[in-house]
Design a protein around this nucleic acid. Structure first.
Lengths: 249, 249
DNA sequence: TGGTGGCGGTTACAAGCCGTTACAATATTT
DNA sequence: AAATATTGTAACGGCTTGTAACCGCCACCA
């Protein structure tokens, strides 16, 4: 993998009162080519935002003093720096998040650094394209053919209600496909959309992901119903997808 | 043949009655990595839209038969496939366009292909972000001699009700023939209609497709009943074809 | 009547694409 | 550090599709 590029991919501000998490994320993100500044609370966050050119804020929901939520709102009011919130799992916070937050994405703890990285890339990419987009966080749920794909939770339920275990890459791929139903996505597009990679080198890794994914979600992986192949074109999600926001009312 | 077919950036449908323009755009866009289908009028446009997964339509304002403007409106009513209109320069059309048209962009003739490319990219990028609510996929069904050809599903049932497995190219060819019953279609026409290819070079690949197709659907392929050869002319579909439309689910 | 050349059917083959297995290289967890 | 899981690479095999080549058919003609 090409993680060793020390070029500047962006300056990330991590706001978390847990020192261990700060250190962990700091090391991890730096290893992946980001500049990182870590702070413990809202006051320091303010200072950092004024002193640096921050590209993305990773913000813990629970903070001493002013809590993450209001920080988030405040930040969003003044700028459109992308925000990723870290939350504890619970219905409660989920609802709060959906209703209140102006974050671009959120991640339930515990999360793998890898997941955070993926989200960050996605958010940064989105921000890149839409400099002034007013993205509202979505606890989006996609449903198709009885399946339930809960994006915020990164979970997938089968028509029988069983949780299906997808790897991170598999999940991202599935989400990407399901978000563009009926649309043929080339391998390159899929690579770009899931990994943010555009390296053009002919790459069959997507084929492998598709293959593995099909085994997990197609009733007969030799005759896929959901993810269809378009010869010479790529792949396409063939099911009817309905989209719900968790918190709409 | 298709040596440097790069990635698939999308499937473009070019609707223009001027063959020269069709050819030009076809070659140009393909060279730039797009799949291209070219048709001459609204009727063919319809078929292409139903048979393919079109990502963008390039539509000439002036067309024989139903004119581009109403086609555009009709298309917009049913789907949200992006549309780029080609127009003659004139205040008149400019105003009409602004008022009437549901197109995503328009381009006054004469234009440079390069310019079109830029517009296309912009429109596609915009469309990509707004996931479709379209896919009112109607499934056209053609019946002949007991056979059932379901276009939306790309499936073919024999008179015994058995599913017959056709390759992609075979299917397209059969659809094209069945949609012009009694009409003699030259090899060039077939090439154009099925592949959107206009490269007229003498090509016997159609012969091969026909041969393979006959083996699958004729009871005796040495004495074809459905697909007849017209010496010096091409091929013709000799059966009576009835057409049904159903709403797909 | 036998030759000739265009045309179409078919076989054989080459090239490309895709699914998959096996495995190597990392990452992550314990 | 060992055990596990994830992810990319290589490579085999099957299927699709286009090309070349051979062959027979037909029309035409001297």
């Amino acid at each position: 993998m090409n993680t060793s590029m020390a070029e500047n991919l962006g300056h990330i501000l991590v706001v978390d009162d847990d020192r261990e998490i700060r250190d962990l994320l700091g090391r991890f993100l730096k290893k992946h080519g980001y500049r990182v500044t870590t702070v413990a609370d809202g006051k320091e966050m303010q200072r950092a935002l004024e002193g640096w050119n921050i590209d993305l804020v990773v913000l813990d929901l629970m903070l001493p003093g002013e809590d993450g939520l209001s920080l988030c709102r405040g930040l969003r009011a003044k700028s459109n720096i992308p925000i990723i919130m870290l939350t504890m799992i619970s219905e409660e916070t989920d609802r709060i998040i959906g209703l209140e937050m102006g974050a671009d994405d959120y991640l339930p703890k515990p999360f793998s650094p890898r997941e955070l990285l993926a989200r960050m890339k996605a958010v940064l990419r989105r921000a890149q394209k839409t400099p002034n987009a007013n993205s509202t966080a979505r606890a989006k749920i996609l449903s198709f053919a009885g399946w339930t794909l809960e994006i915020g939770r990164r979970s997938l339920k089968s028509p029988d209600g069983l949780l299906v275990d997808l790897s991170s890459a598999e999940f991202d791929l599935l989400v990407t496909l399901a978000e563009h139903p009926q649309k043929v996505l080339s391998r390159d597009q899929l690579l770009d959309l899931t990994h943010g990679r555009t390296e053009a080198a002919f790459d069959r890794s997507i084929d492998m992901q598709i293959s593995r994914l099909r085994r997990k979600i197609e009733t007969d992986h030799t005759q896929p119903e959901l993810i269809k192949t378009v010869r010479g074109g790529g792949y396409t999600f063939a099911a009817v997808v309905t989209q719900d926001e968790t918190i709409d009312t």
